[in-house]
């Protein structure tokens, strides 16, 4: 590992420790929800990182279609995978938080449903990457990524309308309105730490993907030369 990368990893680990301390010990306990509200410090930053990853995935996919550079494709693949991981964390921590606070694990509310559909879209993206073969993968994946990204606002609009029409049993929102300054402080530390973790994961996966591409290219070269060097 390059020294600069190592430094970044060390800083991120420090940040993560500090932000966890902030979330668990410094931030005050929420009055009505109690200790379980602390999941907020992991739930929301994960959602932020997932969103960020999917946005990077979209930009990289467009870049791939324009410039046809396999580095852009590697970045798209890396960010989609990390995005799905963080989106999964959101979908798991959400119900854990929702059950004691709302009384139910899941409700088909606009934000929850949109997150789930988002997750479905990017899982289908990963499946396509796995099933497509050879260099077509990159083009097909980039095209699907653009479809997925265009779909998200439409999904959100339609589900919001769907839900306002048939009101859901749960009205209580999250801790979004009027956050305590100390809570906000802890929240931003977590946001920063999670963003750094996301960047590290994407970069690691990006390097791995580039290596995989290199190996594949070498294999193709070798096969062209008759399989012997």
């Amino acid at each position: 590992m390059k020294p600069l990368n190592l430094l970044f990893v060390v800083i991120t680990l420090g940040l993560l420790g500090f932000s966890t301390y902030q979330a668990l010990f410094v931030a005050p306990t929420e009055q009505t929800m109690g200790e379980v509200q602390r999941i907020f410090y992991y739930h929301v930053p994960s959602a932020w990182v997932a969103g960020l990853c999917f946005f990077v995935n979209f930009l990289a996919s467009v870049a791939y279609l324009v410039k046809r550079s396999s580095n852009a494709d590697a970045l798209a693949a890396a960010s989609a995978e990390v995005g799905v991981v963080f989106c999964t964390i959101v979908l798991i921590t959400g119900p854990i938080w929702g059950r004691p606070v709302w009384g139910i694990w899941w409700t088909w509310d606009a934000r929850l449903t949109t997150t789930l559909v988002l997750w479905l879209i990017y899982v289908s993206y990963l499946i396509l990457r796995r099933f497509a073969s050879g260099s077509q993968t990159q083009t097909l994946a980039a095209v699907l990524a653009i479809f997925g990204f265009v779909d998200v606002p439409i999904v959100y609009m339609s589900i919001r309308w769907f839900r306002t029409q048939h009101p859901s049993p749960v009205i209580a929102g999250g801790a979004n309105s009027g956050l305590d300054p100390i809570m906000l402080h802890a929240f931003f530390w977590n946001l920063l730490a999670f963003t750094c973790v996301g960047i590290i994961l994407v970069m690691a996966r990006y390097r791995l993907q580039k290596m995989e591409n290199q190996v594949e290219a070498e294999h193709a070269e070798l096969a062209l030369q008759g399989g012997v060097r």
Partner: peptide, 13 residues
């Protein structure tokens, strides 16, 4: 697998 997730809003509508 790739058509259904994208089509969810259309199907809902």
């Amino acid at each position: 697998l790739i058509l259904f997730p994208i089509s969810i809003p259309a199907l809902l509508a």
